[in-house]
Amino acid sequence: MRKGVMRPGHVQIRVLDVEEAIVHYRDRLGLIEVQRDDVGRVYLKAWTEIDAWSVVLRPADEAGLDFMGFKVVDSDTLAARKQDLIDYGCEVETVPAGELKGCGERIRFELPTGHKFELFAEKEQTGKWGVTDNNPEAWPEGLKGMRASRFDHCLLYGDDVDGAVDLLQNVLGFQLAEQVLDRAANDFRVAAFLTVSMKAHDVAFVRHPEKGKFHHASFYLESWNDVLRAADLISMHDIPLDIGPTRHGLTHGQTIYFFDPSGNRSEVFAGGDYTYPDHPVVTWDADKLGKAIFYHDRELNENFLGVVT
């Protein structure tokens, strides 16, 4: 049952060199640089997003994920979910409005996988970039690189995936859309894909021995042709490639993975399955994990499984 958590709102990523990172996220992925703040963070947005920004790059001496934030429908819902999280046993921190420029109050807590998660109810809205909301044209001219249309989801690696699923389902109303179970080990859950929308995933988790690891931030493209075009750009600019272009078994998205200059993985993808609230959970068996992840190769890739920031 949905609980007023509406959609992904933002991701804050740590980068070793912010100028190199901007080239990746702005000129290659095609996000729009929006603003900077007095601690050196850079804010960007994808062109179809209504919010003023969705991706925040923070200069740091290590790579990885600071936090992912979801928007809730209103401030009453924010207060209600905060109380629910406290009742569930979470330590909930309140981050004052304005700490991220243009964002209202955020509440922050840690998932059992060690990842920092946030909820917020208000953020400045500047509308889609380059198109109006009255008689809008199909797309704006002047987009760069891969022309990513939205920040879509994150894949996170951590230990207590069942704990994260329980919290997200029961406290925040996420729906488990897809999962990977090890049938030979009492259906041990190896991966979980969760949604608050019709998308196949708004956030996903893969079991990993270390807490709080970041596998990738993903951005949506319109078509398979756009994924191939992204692959061309990856070669043109000699960007470290992880894998692709290929298709996933899980969610059936068409995808390519590559790394930002600090080693954080990015994905751009197109297509993919949809999920209504009455849809049953789609399950892949762990002994088919190769096909579940890379539908064409059908072979596990050590880097995809082990390389995280």
């Binding site: 070793l16 001496d61 290590e62 790579a63 990885g64 790394f259 930002d260 600090s262 880097n303 082990g306």
Partner: peptide, 27 residues
């Protein structure tokens, strides 16, 4: 691994010789 100094899988020790190092994750 990531080839950006972030993931740590290519950790080595240099016993001898000169090199230039770019920024890498302090973790």
């Amino acid at each position: 691994g990531c080839r950006g100094g972030g993931c740590g899988v290519c950790r080595i020790r240099v016993h001898d010789g000169e090199y230039e190092a770019k920024k890498m994750s302090r973790k």
